[in-house]
Computed example of a mutant assay.
Amino acid sequence: MIQWLKDRHNITSNRLHRDFSDGFLMGQILKRILPDHVELNNYPRRNGFKSKLYNWETINKNMLVKLQMKLSKNVMEKLASSRQDTIDVVLYKLMTVEKEMYENIKKYAAQESMHCIHNDIHCDVVSKESDMDVIVQAPSEMISYLTYAEVKTDLKKSCKSLCLVQEKSANLENQRKLMDECINTLCSQIAEMCNSF
């Protein structure tokens, strides 16, 4: 686990229970795992027990629940009060979840992804059957699969709306042409009636 913290998240510490007590370092790790879902300013460095506990409650509510790692009030209190071995259990679980996420990404990449290169843009198309938040490679950045799926859904809705607007526009254009023809016909009939008097 210490090696995972060092290699994967650039965190070195001999006193994990103290360094993680305010939740700040946990926020940094979560930012690396789910970059689109973590705002580091929500988890500032804290000194007092109540402030540290507040950070852990926020992390638990906003992030750990999404990773199916919900912590009990008792565990959060132990973390905030720097109890030894409590952070070890939480970090081990997080390490396991992160490894599972990356294994799933590799599995999906091997089984269901298609690679396309078009005008120097590389993209991976990932199957939408997944209900977990995996990472999708997009041009020059990483985005979560949930964000990708939401944007794709919004794009489909926008395309449908655009098609409806185009159909209505075409209908209005046809009606305008018919009205122009009617007006021209009426004008020519009026001109003929005026000429006959």
Rank of each mutant, 00 (worst) to 15 (best):
10 N>H: 13
90 V>G: 05
117 I>E: 09
166 Q>Y: 10
46 R>I: 01
63 M>N: 15
95 M>Q: 15
110 A>I: 11
191 A>G: 00
33 I>Y: 01
22 D>R: 00
123 C>H: 07
124 D>I: 05
64 L>G: 04
63 M>T: 08
131 D>P: 03
78 K>L: 06
145 Y>F: 15
8 R>G: 07
138 A>Y: 11
31 K>G: 02
33 I>W: 01
99 K>E: 09
113 S>H: 03
86 T>F: 01
41 N>V: 12
39 E>H: 06
150 E>A: 06
37 H>E: 13
59 I>P: 06
193 M>I: 14
164 L>D: 07
36 D>C: 06
1 M>V: 09
73 K>Y: 10
171 N>R: 14
35 P>I: 03
130 S>C: 12
80 A>E: 01
108 Y>D: 06
80 A>R: 01
153 T>N: 11
194 C>N: 14
140 S>M: 15
69 M>D: 00
189 Q>R: 14
12 T>V: 13
191 A>I: 04
31 K>D: 01
161 S>C: 10
120 D>L: 11
16 L>A: 08
79 L>W: 03
135 I>A: 05
83 R>I: 09
37 H>S: 14
29 I>W: 00
143 I>V: 04
14 N>S: 09
194 C>F: 12
133 D>W: 02
112 E>V: 10
141 E>P: 02
41 N>Y: 12
73 K>N: 09
57 E>H: 13
17 H>Q: 11
89 V>W: 03
39 E>C: 07
165 V>S: 13
98 E>P: 00
183 I>R: 02
40 L>N: 02
135 I>Q: 08
47 N>G: 10
72 S>Y: 02
93 K>C: 13
110 A>P: 00
159 C>H: 11
197 F>H: 14
89 V>Q: 10
38 V>D: 01
27 G>F: 03
146 L>Q: 11
91 L>Y: 04
32 R>K: 12
4 W>D: 02
183 I>P: 00
165 V>L: 15
149 A>R: 15
29 I>T: 01
155 L>I: 06
108 Y>E: 05
150 E>D: 12
171 N>M: 12
46 R>V: 00
56 W>A: 02
169 S>A: 07
37 H>G: 10
10 N>R: 14
118 H>I: 11
153 T>Y: 13
27 G>H: 03
14 N>G: 09
177 K>Y: 03
99 K>I: 09
98 E>F: 07
49 F>C: 06
77 E>R: 07
9 H>N: 04
92 Y>S: 13
172 L>W: 12
82 S>E: 14
110 A>Q: 12
118 H>Q: 13
29 I>L: 03
183 I>C: 05
75 V>M: 05
196 S>N: 10
169 S>I: 06
147 T>I: 08
26 M>W: 11
82 S>C: 03
197 F>G: 08
107 K>Q: 05
123 C>P: 04
11 I>K: 08
43 Y>G: 00
127 S>C: 05
20 F>V: 09
110 A>M: 12
131 D>W: 08
179 M>V: 03
174 N>W: 02
126 V>H: 08
8 R>K: 13
152 K>Y: 11
7 D>P: 05
98 E>T: 06
177 K>R: 09
42 N>C: 08
51 S>F: 07
135 I>K: 14
164 L>I: 05
62 N>A: 09
47 N>V: 14
37 H>N: 13
156 K>Q: 07
154 D>R: 13
71 L>V: 01
170 A>P: 03
